[in-house]
Simulated scan of single mutants.
Amino acid sequence: MSIEDKLAELGVTLPNAPAPAANYVPFVQIGDIVYISGQISNDANGLIVGKLGDTMELDAGVAAARSCAISLLAQVKAACGGDIGRLERVIKLTAFVNSTDDFTDQPKVVNGASDFLVEVLGDAGRHTRSAVSAASLPLGVAVEIEGIFQVK
């Protein structure tokens, strides 16, 4: 099953790749490796804001991380000239979770992204990762994730 078919089966349509909000590029490709800048949590209703351990529950954080993974795939698609089928595998995610000092479930939050990528890509979605706490994130978003991908 193609990546597009799997996304459709899950009811996911990749949005247009988000434009950079400052002085950086959304991705850089070196050989068959694509580095994607941090993607902040958002959905069709706008930014997903909140602080885990304070104003946001774990399930909402998981959904926020999933939204970051969808934006990452949108950026990979843009990097591949609109052909997401060129994606070979996810190499690494680095995730930042807007959370309180005593919140320790950052890995559970980031599973929202990791589980989604494995669901869409199978073994090619399995990746290394870091999941760390941040005292705050841009615009008050709940999660920001950057990624490294291999493409054809």
Rank of each mutant, 00 (worst) to 15 (best):
V25A: 11
A124L: 03
H127N: 13
S2P: 01
A74F: 11
R89C: 07
M56A: 06
D102F: 04
Q150W: 04
A135T: 15
Q29I: 12
G112T: 12
Q39V: 01
V97S: 08
A78H: 07
N16M: 06
S136Y: 13
L14P: 03
E4L: 05
R126D: 11
A142I: 15
L117H: 05
A135D: 15
T55W: 10
S41N: 01
A19D: 12
A65N: 04
N16I: 02
S2L: 00
M56N: 10
D115I: 09
E144Y: 07
G140R: 10
V76Q: 08
E144D: 14
Q29Y: 05
K51D: 15
G46I: 12
I48Q: 07
V49T: 11
N16Q: 11
G140M: 11
L87V: 04
L117S: 12
E88K: 10
A142Q: 14
D123W: 05
R86H: 05
I33M: 14
D32H: 04
A44P: 00
F27V: 04
I3R: 02
F103E: 00
A63F: 00
N98V: 00
G85S: 15
S37T: 06
T104N: 12
R126G: 04
S133C: 13
P20G: 10
A21I: 09
I148E: 14
V132P: 05
S136G: 05
H127I: 05
D59N: 08
K6V: 09
M1E: 02
K92T: 01
G11V: 08
L58N: 05
Q106W: 01
V143E: 13
E57L: 14
S136L: 08
V76T: 03
S2H: 05
N42H: 13
V12W: 07
A60T: 08
S130D: 09
A64N: 10
L73V: 02
H127M: 14
I33C: 12
L72V: 08
G81V: 02
G50M: 01
D54Q: 13
A131C: 15
V25Y: 13
Q29W: 06
P138A: 15
L52W: 06
E119I: 06
N45F: 05
T128G: 14
F96L: 12
N98I: 00
G53L: 00
I3N: 01
S114E: 09
